[in-house]
Simulated assay, not measured.
Amino acid sequence: MARAVRATRIQRASWTLSPDISSTPIARHLVRAQLTDWGYDGESDIAELLVSELVTNALLHGRGVPVITLSFREGTLRCEVEDENPALLQVREEPDNDENGRGLLLVDMLSRSWGTDRTRAGRPGKAVWFELPAHPAYQAS
């Protein structure tokens, strides 16, 4: 008896940003445009907010140029922001003040899951990522 095997389609987009604060609104625009292109009908506002937090964090506390990778697979939207600082991040239980320390708390509260990983060989640093449930209205061709 033959079994049907369903291929899993992964959609992926990646961008290298400049290492200055003007990259944060550019990152939000890139994410919104890509989600629109993929037909994402979920919470794109949340994805934009969270990518904004991760990019800003990479620009203020990371090293090198940030790289964003957005992927969609089996109902999950994943966003990774890489930088060249190898120090892994942790959520602060209580932010220092009104200006600092709230970004990762937002990521923690609004995402399905999040974390940090070391980057692949050949690129020192870390990737901070989050995942959101996502249901595109159609499959991009």
Rank of each mutant, 00 (worst) to 15 (best):
R32A: 11
D96Y: 05
T76L: 14
R120E: 15
R12V: 06
A7F: 10
S22E: 11
S52L: 00
E48L: 08
R63L: 13
A4D: 13
A13C: 05
T69P: 00
T119S: 14
P86H: 08
L77P: 00
G75D: 05
N100W: 11
P66C: 00
S22I: 00
G115Y: 07
L106I: 05
P133S: 13
A4K: 13
E74F: 04
V55W: 05
G125P: 08
D41S: 12
S44R: 01
I21G: 06
V128Q: 02
H61A: 02
Q34R: 09
L106M: 11
V81N: 14
E131M: 04
E53N: 06
H61L: 07
M109G: 05
Q11C: 09
R102D: 03
D108P: 03
V65C: 08
W38C: 01
L105N: 06
D45C: 01
T56I: 01
G101Q: 02
L59E: 11
E53A: 04
V81S: 07
T16K: 09
P136V: 02
H29K: 09
N85A: 12
I46Q: 07
V65K: 10
R28S: 13
D41V: 00
V107P: 15
D117L: 07
A47L: 01
L132Y: 12
R28Y: 00
R92G: 09
S113C: 06
G64D: 08
D20F: 08
I21T: 13
L105T: 11
V67A: 04
R118A: 12
L60I: 04
P95W: 11
S52M: 03
L77N: 09
E99M: 12
V5G: 13
H135D: 14
S14I: 02
E93H: 13
E93K: 08
A47Y: 01
Q90L: 12
A2I: 15
R112W: 10
H29S: 08
E99V: 09
V51S: 07
E94T: 15
D83V: 06
F72P: 02
Q34N: 03
A4E: 15
Q90A: 15
S23N: 07
D96F: 05
I21Y: 12
E131D: 15
A87F: 13
Y138V: 00
S71R: 09
L35T: 07
R6V: 13
L110A: 15
G39D: 06
